[in-house]
Design a protein around this nucleic acid. Structure first.
Lengths: 197, 197
DNA sequence: CCTACCGATCGGTAGG
DNA sequence: CCTACCGATCGGTAGG
């Protein structure tokens, strides 16, 4: 009985367990940091033995890269839809900020905070791989910044302006407490009011 | 010969070696993170054996707290002088941003980046201890934010406005590359132009 | 501040 | 995906 029928579509099973590993790793990495999380922590959290994550990933760093890529591929479609929409510049910015706050602060959204926090824990090769997706995300923000500047809503465009704005939002991962003070809608609204003229 | 005269004022010697430990630990923590740095890394960098840092600090975490407190006590006087000055609000903000950029991005200024990065690596007790100094620093920013709002230069005051502004500046630790693009003066100027109306 | 060391834990692997 | 394990390394300590 104990060994009955392990035979479902092997790819499907593997993908489920793999997805489990990515999800719980995201949570643990966010809470304790990459270097503060052990393979045994991850294995325990999904009910595996300590050696088994390496059946799904070549190394701990590959798990980290998968966490970041998961966050980026999940967040990109929504951001792309907002940028491609015909919303006026101010509303478009506020919508992009709101969507970004969701991926950074929303319940269960641990992937992008890990990207922001533990980027330096990736090997250069993995940084290069993840950077392809990350650059697409950054370019969306750059497009909106340019649009805001053309509409006279901010004083400058350019990379520095984009990084300052994204920094203001991203930094919220260090101070925002869910359920205390403003919710995400109010936060997006306040950011737009603060940064746009 | 080899053991001649270890007898100078013991407090003075200890303080020098202790200061060495704090300085190199700041650099290593910034480069590799707290969890990515070992006591042996630190001891090697100051020319001690691996057990010797514990003659100066009770634990690795105590070194981390000392790094953060060093950064705060070094940065506070300059910030206090700026806030207490009679500069007009816009110039005061730009000066505060400029001073803060120096403590975050300046050569050899690794203390505050460590505070921003590795805050969660502190035990709750040590967080509480460091927070006393940190709160003083944050209050200075809050005072300037209030002043800016009264002068009609920003749309809101309050904690959220302060955190968004500080986040924009602090986040530069993740992207600023010395010698490429804008220098710190230009960066402070651009931040003021972007955020003040 | 060094010597010598400890118990615990780490990422990862061979073989099934 | 488990069992069993490896070599390396970790933070910290006793005793001087």
């Amino acid at each position: 009985m104990s060994k009955a029928a392990p035979s479902a579509p092997p790819g499907a099973i593997d993908n489920n367990r793999r997805a489990d590993l990515v999800r719980v790793s995201a949570r643990l990495f966010r809470e304790r940091g990459f270097d503060g999380t052990t393979i045994r922590d991850i294995a325990d959290a999904v009910g595996m033995r300590s050696g088994s994550p390496f059946y799904h990933f070549k190394s701990k760093q590959e798990i980290l890269a998968a966490v970041m890529e998961e966050g980026l591929t999940a967040g990109l479609p929504a951001a792309e839809a907002i940028v491609a929409s015909d919303l006026p510049p101010r509303a478009k910015f506020e919508a992009l900020v709101r969507a970004h706050l969701e991926t950074v602060l929303g319940a269960g959204h641990d992937f992008i905070p890990v990207l922001l926090y533990d980027w330096r824990c990736l090997t250069p090769e993995l940084q290069e791989r993840v950077k392809i997706l990350r650059d697409r995300y950054d370019q969306l923000w750059q497009d909106v910044v340019t649009e805001l500047h053309r509409a006279g809503l901010i004083a400058s465009d350019g990379t520095v302006a984009r990084l300052l704005l994204m920094g203001a939002i991203n930094y919220s991962v260090l101070w925002y407490k869910d359920g205390q003070g403003a919710d995400l809608d109010q936060l997006a609204s306040e950011a737009a009011a603060l940064f746009l003229r």
